[in-house]
Design a protein around this nucleic acid. Sequence first.
DNA 1: TCGATATTTCAACGATACTGGAAGTATGGA
DNA 2: TCCATACTTCCAGTATCGTTGAAATATCGA
Lengths: 121, 121
Amino acid sequence: MEIKTAVTSLSALAHEGRLTVFRALVRAGQSGMAAGRIADESGTPANTLSAQLNILSQAGLITSERQGRSIIYSACFDQMSDLIVFLMEDCCAGEACVATSVEAAANRVLCCTTENKELTQ
Amino acid sequence: MEIKTAVTSLSALAHEGRLTVFRALVRAGQSGMAAGRIADESGTPANTLSAQLNILSQAGLITSERQGRSIIYSACFDQMSDLIVFLMEDCCAGEACVATSVEAAANRVLCCTTENKELTQ
DNA sequence: TCGATATTTCAACGATACTGGAAGTATGGA
DNA sequence: TCCATACTTCCAGTATCGTTGAAATATCGA
């Protein structure tokens, strides 16, 4: 990931409203959420939210798809994954303590995912 | 990590100049770099750089220590580690693809660190 | 103590970002 | 075709950010 791309992604996430929206979309998973529902749940006016979604979208962090009158937004994990890897490799290079913590977190996430899959299968 | 803290850290890094400075400090390692040298190498005026360092410092991403007339700045990895873990756990929850990529990156970093240690011992 | 060096703080400005009212566009149903 | 719904775009006001010149502070050596 190039530094300019990283700055764009970081800027998009560096706003409490947008970060909250992004996390809501992460929790919503693959089915995503309609813009209107996000606006309702966050109590943000529709036009303000639209601007926030646009910034996240231009940063490649979310994608949208129209479904009837609604537009469904969902988190796009590729960009987030690239960003995290960039932060770890290019911004913490060679720091074992960071890599160890992060690896442990990755294992916790993988563990939970596996558990969830087992539960839902 | 709380969301406000995350936003502060993300904001501090969401600026090309500041991110470049932070990466330079990461590369400099434990010995750090004097403010003047950072200014020279980045071609940034001293007062502009001072403001940038202040923002990174207030976000807990770097620390400083006076040494004679110089002030030595160095990267503070704890905060960065917390931020990466926050992004992975709270902003990618349950996404195996992210955790897998990140875990692989963590392993690469750990591998390099080990190699470096072997070389320098 | 004085001057040189290293860095920060202050004040002001221009630039950019954020918000929300009003108007515009797209879709589906009557 | 017309209306309601669901969003977006446009625009203007306000707030915040980023940079810089000038002045202040801290340290060291003579």
